[in-house]
Each structure stands twice: as structure tokens, then as C-alpha cells.
């Protein structure tokens, strides 16, 4: 059995190779290397899943490091990306998540020793509902963001009658990218809502009030409102194409800001880093 450190390094290596192979295969238009990229991404995901299954629950009582927090998001990104890629039978959708996961792994490195303060009483269910659902919705948002970005780039070229050059010729059709964006945002919003509701519910016994004006709470509710607007317009008003793609990108960027800046630099209940 490998140690968690070896397993983490192996996962990181597989995600890095999957990203290199996927990006090179896409940029140079080499289908073989795109397939290799998909295979390596799946292998990396399996290794990470095994590490989580065998080691994560044992590390929880000691506290969850913020590095592990990023790695968990990477796992959810891979889960959603590969799931959607397989469901839509689209290689590109399966290739999206590896570089994102790699980025999240790289971001996790400085924080592997920094522990998240998880209240003892909530340790078991806290992860399952509040963190779990929020992680999953964040992973879906990340994919929505990539699909949205690609949609905007390709749509602009088609609208302005510019020639599709290089790897852009191999990208999925606009409809598929829009569908990917729709599926991820429509699935992500209820999860985000559930995660937020769980957080508010638990905030009362822990911090004395559901909403205490904490910066993290404020920005999260702001994101939720934008997300709700996107969800409503997608489902009820039939928004398609550029508009929801842009909004999904904005929501994801705000979420990233919330994780990177608010969680680590601001004075908040969610400032999990303990030096």
C-alpha cells in the first residue's frame, strides 16, 4: 500500500501528464494524445479516489488542511468532468477537468499543513452536507466556466465570420457547449443552495446567529443571488448561448475570489488557516 504522500504525488503526476497530453493533443490536433490524456485523467481520478477512500476519514479527526480542501474540489471537478464527458460521449468535455484539477492541486501545495477548524460536534455531518454540496457545485461551476469561455470564443468567431484555425476546428459544436453549460449550472444551483442552507443552519448553534454579516456569508449570498438569477433565466426564460455563459464565468470567478481571498486573507469565521 502506498503512503498518502506517494499517492498524492502519483495523482499530481497523472493529472499533470493528462493535462500535458490533453493540451498537446488538442493544440497539435493529435487524436491519439487526446485519448491518452483522457486515459491518464481517469487513472489520476481513480488513484485520488482510492487515496480519499483509504486515508481521508482517518485524517479528519486531526483536522482537515486547506490543501486537502483544494484537493477535494479537484476530485469533484474530475468527477463531474469525467461523468459529463462519458454521458455526452465527448472527449473534450472529459479533457476539461484535468488542467483544472492540476491547478487546484498546485494551489493546495502551500496549505497542506494548515488545518481547518472544524467544530467537534459537527465534524461528521458538516463535511457531508455543507462542504460536500458546495464542493460539488463549485466543481460544476468550474466546468460551466470552461464551457462558457469556449462557447464565447467560438461563437464570436462564427458570428464575425472568422476562420476556425488549428485546434478550434476540433472543438465541440456551440449547441453542445451551451448544453454543457446548462447542465452544470442547473445541477449546480440546487447543490449550492443546499450547501448554503446547511451552513446557515449550523451557523446558529456555532456562531449564535444564522447570519452574522461575516464577509464570507455576504459574498456567498451575493453569489447565490446571481446563481439563482442564472438558474431562473435558464429554466423559465429559456436563456441560451452567450448571456448565461458570461454569467456562469462571473459566478465562478466570484467563487474563486471567495475561496482564495476571503477564506485566506479576510477576518471571517471561514478563515480556516491555523498557523
Amino acid at each position: 500500500m502506498t503512503s498518502p504522500e506517494t499517492g498524492t504525488l502519483l495523482t499530481l503526476g497523472l493529472y499533470a501528464l493528462a493535462s500535458i497530453s490533453g493540451i498537446a493533443g488538442t493544440a497539435l490536433r493529435l487524436p491519439f494524445w487526446r485519448k491518452v490524456g483522457c486515459g491518464l485523467a481517469v487513472a489520476g481520478f481513480i488513484v485520488q479516489t482510492l487515496i480519499l477512500a483509504t486515508g481521508f476519514h482517518t485524517s479528519l479527526p486531526g483536522g482537515l488542511s486547506i490543501g486537502a480542501y483544494f484537493q477535494m474540489i479537484a476530485w469533484f471537478v474530475m468527477l463531474c468532468g469525467l461523468g459529463i464527458g462519458i454521458k455526452m460521449r465527448n472527449e473534450t468535455a472529459a479533457l476539461f477537468p484535468a488542467p483544472l484539477a492540476l491547478l487546484l492541486f498546485a494551489m493546495s501545495a502551500p496549505y497542506l499543513q494548515s488545518l481547518i477548524r472544524v467544530p467537534e460536534s459537527l465534524k461528521a455531518s458538516f463535511f457531508a452536507l455543507h462542504i460536500g454540496t458546495l464542493f460539488l457545485s463549485l466543481a460544476l461551476l468550474a466546468l460551466a466556466c470552461v464551457a462558457g469561455l469556449l462557447f464565447i470564443v467560438l461563437e464570436r468567431r462564427i458570428k464575425s465570420k472568422q476562420h476556425m484555425q488549428g485546434f478550434l476546428q476540433d472543438m465541440p459544436a456551440l449547441s453542445l457547449l451551451d448544453k454543457l453549460n446548462a447542465v452544470t449550472t442547473i445541477t449546480g444551483f440546487p447543490l449550492y443552495t443546499l450547501g448554503l442552507a446547511a451552513g446557515l443552519l449550523w451557523a446558529k448553534p456555532v456562531y449564535g446567529a444564522s447570519f452574522s454579516g461575516d464577509p464570507k456569508e455576504v459574498i456567498t449570498i451575493g453569489i447565490w443571488l446571481l446563481y439563482a438569477w442564472l438558474f431562473h433565466n435558464r429554466l423559465i426564460n429559456g436563456w441560451k448561448g452567450r448571456k448565461p455563459a458570461r454569467l456562469a464565468i462571473i459566478i465562478f470567478l466570484l467563487s474563486l475570489f471567495s475561496i482564495i481571498v476571503v477564506n485566506t486573507l479576510m477576518d471571517t469565521h471561514h478563515a480556516f488557516i491555523r498557523s
Partner: peptide, 24 residues
């Protein structure tokens, strides 16, 4: 090589564009 990959007739170019928008 991509020597035969893209449309070189007006009508076929239109269909290729349609595929870029709608896929299948």
C-alpha cells in the same frame, strides 16, 4: 494532413458551418 478536411464548395461550406453550430 488536413488536405481534405474542410469544405471547398459554397453549399458544403454552409453545411459544415451548420455542424459547428448544431453538432449532430
Amino acid at each position: 494532413t488536413a488536405v481534405a478536411s474542410s469544405a471547398v464548395s459554397i453549399s458544403y461550406a454552409a453545411v459544415e458551418l451548420a455542424k459547428r453550430i448544431f453538432g449532430e
